[in-house]
């Protein structure tokens, strides 16, 4: 899917429910191409739910419902009226990295290529090259090049998370979703992921959820602040952090700063 315009995602009057319980209501946001957006807010405010709405991963909860318009590159992704939404294709376009690194119990090499291989995106002859490129892109190549056939579980948490990132990138996504990617990592590994996010932001659309306000401030251009079941405030990072409009945002930012 090629995006004709500058905006990747448009959400208009979106309401998200689990069963009859509203999680987020009245969401209206747009996300520009090749930008870095962070989603912040207190626990349980629906950050992950919002993120997972973008690649329809919430579909796997039987009670999940989404109303309103969610459009990706001009196509409404929840509009199944003409059965035209190809969820698999959509998710190939939108890479995702989870809070906990999730590697399949095979070798490092197989893990990098998991998506590429299964989706048959590239011919077999290119596999090794792809693996090398992707592992280099996440600064993991030098650490693992001698043990590509070893089990991925030998790696440290930080390395595993970078490997997850490499696996997502191998499918050549246009958008990258990260759900608290540094929450289970030590400071040094977090730093590596953070610099990767900054680097990737120049060519991809990156959207990430974080608890860590400093991280949101340093990495993102746009911030979405969720609270009390709605988008409390969203906009440029400077505007939100220096002079937030809403009392709620002020309190949240202040509470975290102290």
């Amino acid at each position: 899917m090629d995006c004709p315009s500058d905006t990747v995602f448009i959400l208009e009057d979106v309401n998200l429910f689990f069963g009859s319980v509203p999680i987020l209501t009245d969401v209206n946001i747009t996300i520009r191409q090749r930008s870095i957006t962070s989603i912040i807010g207190p626990s349980g405010s629906g950050k992950s739910t919002l993120l997972r709405t973008l690649n329809r991963l919430n579909d796997h909860y039987p009670t999940f419902r989404c109303t309103g318009l969610v459009s990706y590159c001009g196509n409404s992704i929840y509009d199944n009226r003409n059965g035209s939404v190809d969820v698999s294709r959509l998710r190939q376009d939108i890479g995702m990295v989870f809070q906990k690194p999730c590697l399949f119990p095979t070798s490092i090499y197989e893990n990098v290529l998991f998506g590429v291989k299964r989706l048959k995106l590239r011919p077999k002859s290119e596999f090794y090259e792809i693996a090398e490129t992707m592992l280099r892109a996440v600064f993991l190549w030098d650490e693992v090049k001698d043990r590509l056939k070893h089990s991925a579980n030998e790696l440290s948490q930080g390395q595993q998370q970078r490997l997850s990132l490499a696996r997502a990138l191998a499918c050549e996504p246009k958008v990258l979703l990260l759900d608290e990617p540094t929450a289970s990592l030590d400071p040094k590994s977090s730093e590596a992921i953070e610099s990767l996010i900054l680097k990737l932001g120049t060519r991809l659309t990156v959207i990430f959820v974080t608890h860590h306000l400093e991280q949101a401030k340093q990495l993102s251009e746009t911030v979405i602040f969720l609270s009390d079941g709605c988008v409390c405030e969203w906009g440029g990072v400077d505007a939100i952090f220096s002079c937030p409009d809403k009392i709620m945002t002020q309190q949240y930012l202040a509470g975290h700063a102290s």
């Binding site: 796997h60 698999s88 399949f104 998991f114 989706l119 997850s164």
Partner: peptide, 25 residues
Amino acid sequence: NFYREQAYALGLQTHEVIIYAVLPQ
């Protein structure tokens, strides 16, 4: 479950998720 989610997030379809991500384990 996170193995299933990870495989879905990569764009695999249900039967591929089962065959490649769930059954091997």
